[in-house]
Simulated assay, not measured.
Amino acid sequence: MSRQTTSARDRQLHEQLCDSAQRLQKGVNQLTFDEPITHVYNPLDYAWDLHRQYIEQLSAKADVLLLGMNPGPWGMAQTGVPFGEIAAVRDWMGIEGEVGSVEAEHPKRPIEGLNCQRSEVSGRRLWGLMQERYQKPKAFFRKHFVVNYCPLVFMEASGRNRTPDKLPAEERSALQEHCDRHLREVIELLPWKYLIGVGAFAENCLKRVADESETAPAIARILHPSPASPAANRDWAGTAASQLQTIGVW
């Protein structure tokens, strides 16, 4: 395949993924959430330019899809990038730009974009492992891509993060309809060999959405890098690398 053809295929993929992400963005914006949720952020709104730059990292040669749950307050909430640790996004991926504001900002969770001084531990661990193994982002994205299942950040009055699996059944079902559709579209973009859930929630989403035919991608899971997990605090990078080797990805 010529370099020009590959480049054209990449651009087509980027357009398709941008269209899918914007459908997700508009769909979830129509949803409402009751207490204890008091604030909801959608980075696909105010950090769209950075998210679009992230999408443009995707290569048509990628065959490993890693799926996270939803944005963290100091990661994707700031950068529009899944597990979006500031240093990884700005200094490693080379993504730059300003982010907008949210209409109702929680005082404990300000949106500062790439100027945010807080660190997203999960993102630092995940992207740190990828940087250590691949050195250059192009080498990583040639084979892998990372997406989040849900684009929304949910916060309680205290500023505490609430994950999608903790939503009431009715709200969770309405959200799932939009997120499942987007995930299905992402899976259909490329002939993935591996669908990897970063944590059990993401793995279950993949099992629910993915085709179960004999030619379907292998579905597996790696440990989530959250500092709330005691196992992740005991050498997450070593555990995740070992799991990816066992699965056959590395």
Rank of each mutant, 00 (worst) to 15 (best):
A8P: 00
V81S: 02
D49Q: 11
Q4T: 14
I196F: 02
Q12D: 08
P151T: 07
P36W: 05
A202T: 07
N161P: 03
I187Y: 00
A87R: 15
T246M: 07
L65Q: 09
M93L: 14
R11F: 00
R221D: 12
E212S: 12
S213A: 06
G197L: 09
S213Y: 01
V198P: 00
Y134E: 14
Q4C: 06
I111C: 01
Q30W: 04
Q25T: 06
K26G: 07
Q53W: 04
V198Y: 00
E132M: 00
H224M: 04
A60Q: 07
F201T: 05
D10Y: 01
R11A: 08
Q16R: 07
M93Q: 14
N233T: 11
Q4S: 03
Q117T: 13
Q57Y: 01
S7D: 02
T5Q: 08
P191A: 13
Q16Y: 07
R221P: 09
I222Q: 00
F141T: 09
Q135D: 06
P110D: 09
L167H: 14
F33K: 07
K193E: 13
L31M: 06
V186Y: 01
M93P: 15
I196D: 08
H106R: 10
F33A: 03
F145I: 15
W74E: 07
A60D: 02
D211C: 11
P107Y: 12
K26S: 13
S173Y: 08
C205T: 15
D180F: 06
A157W: 14
I55V: 11
I222P: 00
E171L: 08
K61P: 01
H51V: 03
H39V: 10
D10M: 08
L114Q: 05
L175A: 01
I95T: 05
C150E: 06
A8Q: 06
M130S: 10
S158L: 05
V28T: 09
H39W: 08
A169L: 12
P71N: 10
F201H: 08
A200W: 13
W236P: 00
L152T: 08
A231I: 13
E98F: 15
W48R: 12
H39P: 13
E15I: 10
W92M: 09
K136T: 10
H182M: 07
K61G: 04
A200P: 15
H14R: 00
S59L: 04
H106D: 06
R133K: 11
Q176W: 02
Q78T: 10
F141L: 10
R9Y: 07
